[in-house]
Design a protein around this nucleic acid. Structure first.
Lengths: 249, 249
DNA sequence: GCCGGGCTTTGACGCAGATCAACATAAGGC
DNA sequence: GCCTTATGTTGATCTGCGTCAAAGCCCGGC
């Protein structure tokens, strides 16, 4: 049986994150085979809508590369982002056939998809898939609740610092860099408007607060998107989090 | 095999909501039996803390009666509620041994608990339990995301109307009343301060907005807590939701 | 080169909701 | 009865962020 530690020895597992990261890290090889038979890839361009809320949704899948956002809108246009999909994140809900949120590709995106009903069949037959999905969903729930604190109780400056912390952290884990001491460097994958939608702010406020953090030396900016964080603990301080405690995104 | 429709014919299933509402509506009877063997009840008084964030957490369970809240706090005291636990709601996370949030009994509460490790063992052996928990967790995730829109983008008045809608709706389903036309009546289970913590407001603003909704005839108040909603669709209008669309709490 | 359209920054001003403060009401305890 | 404490209401004032507006930057097309 495979487990997360032994993945590197399963050579043909590397082209599809679904298998080893998202869904079935612990599946028997014949289960992997069945997953393999129903999977397919889809590509989306930056800015393209992947799913509209309310649409019929006949697949589930996970992000292979690129970044997508998950958001909901009120009739008058107010928009709140409710999730940020990075590589290995899962989209779709077994047992529901319409999408609850808009999913938009922020950069070029490749997704690994499974038609929903065969996937559901497979899930009922292979307990590990349901357990892995449960684990992932609980992580997402924790992340959502962390965001509720950000949205409900933090100031604009703290919100921006929180977002930067999270992006820095996720970027570090994606690139396999540990919690290296010293400056942290990354590119913002979102426009000011997308950040505003994530944080419940306006794009003007986002811009002003980023300028303020730059002026105060908390971050350095090169161009509009390239960020250097000279002192990560300073940034987390600005975010209002206890130093080690955890943003779980 | 039992299913949700056949529960009423399983006479000894009625004293523990875990079995038929929360965890294992579709379990074989011997699985029910094993759940039965590891379950126990705990009672809490109104105002009492059930769990502190960071505590060791050696059980999972579900609310049998009463109302509890799930919240997180910053060091400076700012508090955000991230969940409202009504009867049949599940608490605890298989696979994690410390609590992530404070859980507080708002009214007197009875919980049905299972020690964590035997519950986890049972879960790996009985796929339906993991699948049922996945379903419940996905519902909670939807509710959390719905709440992110409320926190991030709604005005104080809309926030209050949203909360009242949700309480009215959950109260109706708990009491098996359908979507009866005509006035809806319920008691607020939360103090003004708890509502403020739920909505990311101050208690003064909560009080003022409730007074405003009363002045404008959207609700009627008897005492501080007893609410009558003469026209539910008017209330949902005030909440800024499309009439049928869904607050999923 | 010039032009046009995203994206971003910055300024001026106004308002929704926070803050500070006083008072009202109701429930226990004695 | 009175006093205390928890809870809720209302008013006056302050402020952080939204709104409106103008201009800068950068890239891609022609």
């Amino acid at each position: 049986m495979l487990n997360e530690r032994s993945l590197s020895v399963a050579p043909d597992c590397n082209d599809c994150p679904i298998r080893h990261r998202a869904v079935c890290a612990r599946c028997e090889s014949d289960e992997l085979e069945r997953l393999e038979q129903i999977k397919y890839y889809r590509k989306f361009e930056a800015g393209q809508s992947i799913i509209w809320a309310g649409d019929r949704m006949d697949f589930v899948g996970s992000v292979v590369s690129g970044i997508a956002t998950l958001s909901q809108a009120m009739e008058d246009g107010r928009t709140q982002m409710v999730g940020l999909l990075l590589p290995s994140d899962f989209v779709g809900r077994p047992g529901r056939n319409t999408a609850a949120y808009d999913v938009v590709a922020t950069t070029d995106v490749v997704m690994c998809c499974f038609r929903r009903s065969p996937f559901e069949d497979l899930m009922t037959r292979t307990p590990h898939i349901a357990q892995r999905l449960l684990e992932m969903t609980l992580d997402e729930l924790d992340a959502a609740r962390e965001w509720m604190l950000v949205l409900g109780r933090k100031t604009a400056r703290e919100k921006i610092a929180s977002l930067l912390s999270i992006i820095a952290r996720r970027d570090a884990t994606l690139n396999k860099r540990g919690a290296a001491a010293g400056p942290i460097v990354f590119d913002l994958p979102l426009t000011r408007e997308a950040m505003a939608d994530y944080l419940g702010l306006t794009l003007e406020t986002v811009s002003r607060q980023i300028s303020a953090l730059k002026r105060d030396g908390v971050i350095q900016l090169e161009g509009k998107r390239h960020v250097t964080v000279p002192d990560m603990s300073r940034l987390m301080d600005e975010a209002g989090d206890d130093a080690d405690g955890g943003l779980l995104v």
